[in-house]
């Protein structure tokens, strides 16, 4: 357990924006209306007839140096030895500082419980040896999940053999979610419209 570091590679050459991952996450984790643990951002680029649409599946990056954990005053946000970043709902006071700290806007406040919530990498499934729901449901196999510390894992081999990208590397969080073939405009926090 301690030697593992779970991570995900999202191969955007395969993603066609069906949003099945977004739906699977909602269904698997009972995510309330109006908030998302995982979603697919879409960016349109160019002028007709030369137009391209890019997809960017999003989720918590389960960073190696997570600002949310660093800033949590109660220890409710924590990182497991296997790299999965979680929120202990019993300890969370709902101060929202973790939400403000996350450079990826991956966190939100649950309307009912008034505590912070986010993608858990489906830790309840991973602990049983099953991949996260978004990975399981992806018909294009664009999402690959595994142990980044295992040189024989597919996720490690993809990271080592492809020019992978991470979101906001300048934020210094060292994300565990890597993208292959992501569009720069989709990666940037540019304004809509």
């Amino acid at each position: 357990m301690a030697d593992k570091r779970f991570g995900m590679v999202i191969d955007l050459r395969r993603c066609h924006g069906c949003k099945a991952c977004q739906v699977a996450c909602k269904s698997e984790n009972d995510v309330p209306l109006g908030v998302w643990r995982s979603w697919v951002k879409e960016v349109e680029q160019g002028t007709y007839p030369n137009v391209k649409r890019h997809f960017l599946p999003r989720l918590c990056n389960h960073c190696e140096h997570p600002a949310c954990v660093r800033n949590c005053p109660t220890g409710a946000s924590y990182k497991r030895p296997d790299g999965v970043v979680l929120v202990d709902r019993n300890k969370c006071i709902g101060c929202r500082y973790c939400i403000a700290s996350c450079p990826y806007q991956s966190r939100f406040l649950l309307a009912d419980e008034k505590v912070a919530d986010k993608c858990t990498f489906c830790a309840h499934r991973v602990d049983q040896g099953i991949v996260p729901a978004c990975v399981n449901t992806c018909i294009a196999r664009a999402r690959i999940f595994g142990d980044l510390n295992d040189p024989n894992s597919e996720v490690r081999q993809l990271v080592d053999s492809h020019p992978v990208q991470v979101l906001k590397p300048e934020a210094g969080q060292s994300p565990s979610v890597f993208y292959i073939g992501a569009d720069d405009n989709a990666m940037r926090g540019s304004e809509a419209g």
Binding site: G34, W36, W39, V40, K41, E42, V43, E44, Q45, G46, T47, R53, Q105, F108, L109, N185, S190, E191, A192, G193
Partner: peptide, 12 residues
């Protein structure tokens, strides 16, 4: 080149 976000979720 023109680029615009056509879908994203709302963040409070």
């Amino acid at each position: 080149m023109n680029a615009s976000i056509v879908y994203d979720v709302f963040h409070v």
